[in-house]
C-alpha cells in the first residue's frame, strides 16, 4: 500500500511537470489565455514582417499596405489618428493611427517594429538562458574554485546596471541592433546563472542525484538528466518574465539611439523621433509606447500564470 502511494505520487509529479498538463492548467486562467492570445498575434505580425523584410524586400507591405521605410508619396506628415485633427490636417481612414514625420503610416511601422521586439524576446533571451543555465549548473554542481571564479564574474556583470553595461558594450562594438541583442543576452546571463545555481545546490543534496553519483553516472549526464530538468519550472517562469524585461531594455536602448538604425523601424526608435514632435503630434508618441506596454504586459501575465501553474506553493 505504501509503495503504491509513492508510485502514484511519482506519476502525479511527472504529470505536473508535463508540458500538456501545464498548458491545460494554464488555459484555465483567463488572463493567461488572453496573454497567450496577444503574444500569438504579435508574433504572427512579427513573423509576417520578418518574412516580408528579409526575403521579399517589403513587397508584401508595398502591395497591400504601405512601404514601412520609404517616404510615402503624397501622404501628409504627422497626421493624427482617425477622428482627430491637428495643425497638419485631419486623420484619415487610410492611415488609421496617423502618419510620422515623413508621411509614413504609423500602423505599418508599428507592425514592422514588432519584429525587433519579438526577435529580442526570442533570440537574446534564449542565448541568455542557455549560457546562464550552463554557467549556473556547472558552477553549482562542481563547486570549489570553478564556482568561485564563475560566480565572481557573474557578480561583477550583475553589479553594472543592465542598461549601462549594454551601452558600454555597444560603445565598444557598434550601435547596430545585433550588438544590442548580444548585449542583452549578456545581461540575461547572471540572472539565470544565479537562479540555476541555487536550484542546483538544493537539488544536489537530493537522494536521486546522490544515487546516480554512487552508481557511477558521469557528471555531465547527471547534470543533463537530473539537475537541469528539475530546475525547469523556475527557469520557464523567469524566461518568460525576462522576455518582457529584455524588450523593455532594448526599447530603451533604441530610444537612446543604440539599436535598430533608421530607417528600420523599432518601437523605441519611433519614440525617440516622436519625442521631437510631442507638442504638435502627441499621438505619434502614444502608439509605440502602447505597443511596448501591451507586449511586455502579455509576457508578464504569462509569466505570472506559469508561476501559479508550475509552482503551486506561490499561489495566492
Amino acid at each position: 500500500m505504501a509503495a503504491e502511494t509513492e508510485a502514484a505520487d511519482g506519476e502525479e509529479y511527472e504529470s505536473r511537470v508535463g508540458a500538456s498538463y501545464t498548458l491545460s492548467r494554464l488555459l484555465q486562467d483567463t488572463s493567461a489565455r488572453i496573454s497567450l492570445f496577444l503574444i500569438a498575434i504579435i508574433s504572427a505580425g512579427a513573423l509576417f514582417a520578418f518574412v516580408d523584410a528579409e526575403f521579399l524586400d517589403y513587397r508584401l507591405a508595398e502591395t497591400y499596405l504601405y512601404h514601412p521605410l520609404r517616404n510615402n508619396v503624397g501622404a501628409r506628415p504627422l497626421l493624427p489618428p482617425v477622428g482627430l485633427s491637428n495643425q497638419f490636417g485631419e486623420g484619415v481612414m487610410a492611415h488609421p493611427l496617423g502618419t510620422d514625420t515623413r508621411g509614413r503610416d504609423i500602423a505599418v511601422r508599428l507592425l514592422y517594429g514588432s519584429r525587433i521586439a519579438i526577435q529580442i524576446a526570442l533570440v537574446s533571451t534564449t542565448i541568455g538562458v542557455v549560457v546562464g543555465t550552463t554557467v549556473g549548473a556547472v558552477s553549482g554542481y562542481y563547486g570549489g574554485w570553478v564556482d568561485d571564479v564563475l560566480m565572481r564574474f557573474v557578480e561583477i556583470l550583475y553589479s553594472i546596471p543592465f542598461l549601462v553595461l549594454v551601452i558600454a558594450f555597444m560603445a565598444a562594438f557598434g550601435r547596430e541592433l545585433i550588438y544590442a541583442m548580444i548585449g542583452v543576452s549578456i545581461i540575461s546571463i547572471p540572472i539565470f546563472a544565479r537562479l540555476i545555481r541555487s536550484e542546483v545546490l538544493s537539488i544536489r543534496e537530493e537522494t536521486y542525484v546522490e544515487a546516480a553519483q554512487a552508481a557511477g553516472v558521469k557528471d555531465r549526464n547527471i547534470l543533463l538528466r537530473h539537475v537541469i530538468p528539475n530546475s525547469f519550472a523556475p527557469v520557464v517562469v523567469q524566461t518568460t518574465l525576462q522576455m518582457g524585461t529584455n524588450i523593455l531594455i532594448v526599447a530603451g536602448l533604441s530610444f537612446l539611439g543604440f539599436g535598430a538604425q533608421p530607417p528600420t523601424p523599432s518601437w523605441g526608435q519611433m519614440l525617440s523621433i516622436a519625442r521631437n514632435y510631442m507638442l504638435p503630434a502627441p499621438w505619434f508618441s502614444v502608439w509605440p509606447g502602447l505597443a511596448i506596454l501591451v507586449t511586455v504586459m502579455a509576457f508578464n501575465i504569462l509569466g505570472d500564470g506559469l508561476r501559479d501553474t508550475l509552482d503551486p506553493r506561490l499561489e495566492n
Binding site: 518582457g244 519614440l271 516622436a274 502614444v286 509606447g289 506596454l293 504586459m297 508578464n300
Partner: peptide, 15 residues
C-alpha cells in the same frame, strides 16, 4: 502594478 512593471519609464516621461 501590472501596468507599472510593463511600461517603459521613458514613455511615461513623454506622456
Amino acid at each position: 502594478s501590472l501596468i507599472g512593471v510593463s511600461t517603459p519609464n521613458f514613455w511615461i516621461g513623454l506622456l
